[in-house]
């Protein structure tokens, strides 16, 4: 557990020192969301109708944007190789890094999401559900994304590649995330969607660290 906390703190400190990471992710999220009114027109009804989907798609893309660097720098300077040699299970260390990724990208997105929802004229009934859905959904995005980030270590054009690998796997989170908000907007209980998202989160929590650790071992061996 100590190792988990240590790697979490190390990654967080690195992210904070560079500072730009979280800011960039949020900026990307806001800019992407802002593009939609330009694309579909400023009509309030249309924007309100598509708001939940737009916010989720933008969140998906923003979460994916920072994936490449989860392991890349550590891979290049050899830290990752040392981590695989440590007596602590690599899966736990991976979990620590995923946690750090979520805290620096997922959490800021959750805070930024209601702001964008207001700008897209979304009904206030959906705000609470949107934040809860993102709270459950974004950790799953980080976990699934970590697999992709580990698989592309050492590959050519890793950044583009990771999007091709990870985005199809993100589709369930997108469907249920946007579905939950839509249900809330219609005045129906969003419990079913949120529970399924919880199931997806638990499944990825159980499986993703192992798959990621396996991919990392392949990369450094």
């Amino acid at each position: 557990m100590n190792a988990f906390v240590a790697i979490l703190r190390r990654d967080l400190r690195l992210a904070l020192r560079q500072g730009a990471d979280s800011v960039m992710v949020v900026a990307f999220f806001i800019v992407t969301t802002t593009l939609f009114p330009f694309g579909v027109g400023p009509e309030a009804n249309i924007l309100a109708r598509i708001a939940s989907g737009v916010i989720w798609v933008a969140a998906l893309l923003a979460a994916m944007l920072s994936l490449e660097r989860v392991f890349q720098t550590d891979y290049e300077d050899g830290t990752l190789e040392l981590l695989t040699l440590s007596p602590v299970p690599l899966e736990l260390l991976v979990l620590g890094k995923v946690c750090a990724h979520w805290l620096t990208t997922g959490l800021p997105l959750i805070i930024a999401a209601p702001v964008m929802a207001v700008m897209l004229n979304m009904d206030q009934d959906g705000f609470g559900t949107l934040m809860i859905a993102m709270l459950i959904g974004t950790p799953a995005l980080s976990l699934i994304g970590a697999i992709g980030a580990a698989l592309i270590l050492g590959a050519r054009r890793g950044g583009v590649l990771v999007s091709l690998l990870v985005l199809p796997l993100y589709i369930p989170v997108l469907i249920f995330g946007a579905g939950a908000v839509e249900a809330a907007l219609l005045g129906i209980s969003a419990q079913a969607q949120l529970q399924i998202m919880g199931a997806i989160l638990l499944l990825s929590l159980a499986a993703a660290p192992f798959a990621t650790a396996h991919a990392i071992r392949q990369a450094v061996e």
Partner: peptide, 29 residues
């Protein structure tokens, strides 16, 4: 899309063996 991702991943490495191994992991996921 999953197929295309697999093919892109497998061909993205200089060492084909490494590419195939990464591809196998992706196919399982």
């Amino acid at each position: 899309f999953l197929y295309l991702g697999y093919i892109a991943l497998v061909n993205a490495f200089d060492d084909p063996e490494r590419g195939s191994k990464a591809g196998s992991a992706l196919a399982l996921v």
